[in-house]
């Protein structure tokens, strides 16, 4: 099973083979595309598939799952004689539904995951908050990874002045004080962005993902640059250059797949980090409004009640954990699938 033993070709050869395939498209016996190959290998990676399934499940739960749960919760509230919010409540109404007779209730058949300090249903809040958290986590991670990869790749590949300039910018970003910077950014751009996006929710979302992603790319850039510095001297790059392949193609088609390992680790770390950083933004009052129960916020608020109602922090904490874990397995699978050396 170990991928280490699966390596059959040298990297140079692998790239040459791909190169040769491209040059002689149509001549090969059976055209095997890169994507097709990758998918075939990915499917065989069982943990990766499990990761995908969890992520798909979470996505479905927070988007479609709210409808059955709404009617379940309202039905349960009604049968157990608890106050029911207005007619046809949607999730938005349910997450604000207070019940002072059922504060900090442990998970039970009515409140499947228990209630918080104001008697609000934790599952409803997790479902609603998950929409925001998953989207913020993934989009912010993508922003930071793309930024970091491009900057790191360009700096490492071209070297010289470009490298110097880009790396000094990285230094700058690494040393900026995050909290005042975030306050300033939001203060300067909140109103224009909200105006441009037409709605406060969309505007705040854009600001949050840009701020979170824009402050997290530096480490990726450093790692990618380091890998590029080392790989660009290798034989397969020389070979590709001799064959007249363009610089951009060499960077992203030939060298980048070899740097996927650390990038994927960085990406996995990025999602959890983004979900948690988002909650920090709410704490500074520059993120989503305080009545949006994102997962990071639920953990922070719930931590206060660890001694009396541990589930308040553990449930959203576990949700973040599972998301990050799934993305990690997904990443492992992707790396194995895209690694030109592995032939599963």
């Amino acid at each position: 099973m170990s991928e280490a033993n699966q390596a059959m070709d040298t990297p140079a050869k692998a790239n040459l083979t791909t190169q040769a395939q491209q040059l002689t498209t149509g001549v090969a016996v059976k055209p095997r595309t890169l994507v097709g190959d990758a998918w075939r290998r990915f499917r065989k990676h069982r943990l990766a598939m499990a990761g995908v399934i969890i992520l798909v499940f979470f996505t479905l739960a927070v988007s479609l799952g709210s409808v059955p749960y709404q009617s379940y919760l309202v039905g349960q509230l009604a049968t157990s004689g608890m106050p029911v919010p207005q007619e046809n409540p949607d999730l938005r109404v349910l997450i604000d539904h207070l019940d002072f007779l059922n504060l900090l209730v442990a998970p039970n058949s009515v409140h499947l995951l228990g209630t918080d300090d104001l008697g609000r249903d934790l599952l409803a809040r997790s479902l609603y908050g998950g929409r925001v958290s998953l989207l913020v986590g993934l989009v912010a991670m993508l922003i930071s990874i793309v930024l970091g990869t491009v900057i790191g790749a360009v700096a490492g590949f071209f070297g010289g002045t470009i490298d110097q300039v880009l790396m000094r910018i990285t230094d700058l970003f690494l040393s900026l004080p995050a909290v005042p910077l975030i306050l300033l950014t939001v203060y300067l751009f909140r109103d224009p962005v909200i105006k441009a996006m037409g709605s406060p929710e969309a505007g705040i979302f854009i600001i949050v993902v840009v701020v979170v992603g824009g402050l997290a790319w530096m480490q990726t850039a450093r790692i990618v640059r380091a890998t590029f510095l080392s790989l660009k001297e290798k034989e397969f790059v020389e070979a590709a250059t001799c064959l007249g392949v363009g610089k951009v193609a060499i960077m992203f088609k030939h060298i980048l797949p070899n740097a996927l390992g650390p990038i994927i680790v960085a990406a996995t770390l990025g999602v959890g980090n983004a979900i948690i950083t988002e909650s920090t933004l709410s704490f500074l009052g520059v993120g989503f409004p305080p009545d949006t129960p994102t997962w990071g916020r639920l953990v922070t608020d719930g931590s206060q009640y660890l001694s009396v109602a541990p589930w308040l922090a553990l449930v959203p904490g576990a949700l973040i954990f599972l998301t990050v874990l799934s993305i990690n397995f997904l990443g492992d699978g992707l790396r194995d699938a895209l690694d030109p050396r592995s032939r599963l």
Binding site: L104, V105, L306, P310, A318
Partner: peptide
């Protein structure tokens, strides 16, 4: 293991402090 971990964590934290659910 995963299930075990989560359960263990819940139990650990639950036994921390006063008996759960002190109605405020």
């Amino acid at each position: 293991w995963l299930v075990l971990m989560v359960t263990a964590a819940t139990l650990l934290a639950a036994c921390g402090g006063a008996p759960a659910q002190t109605p405020p």
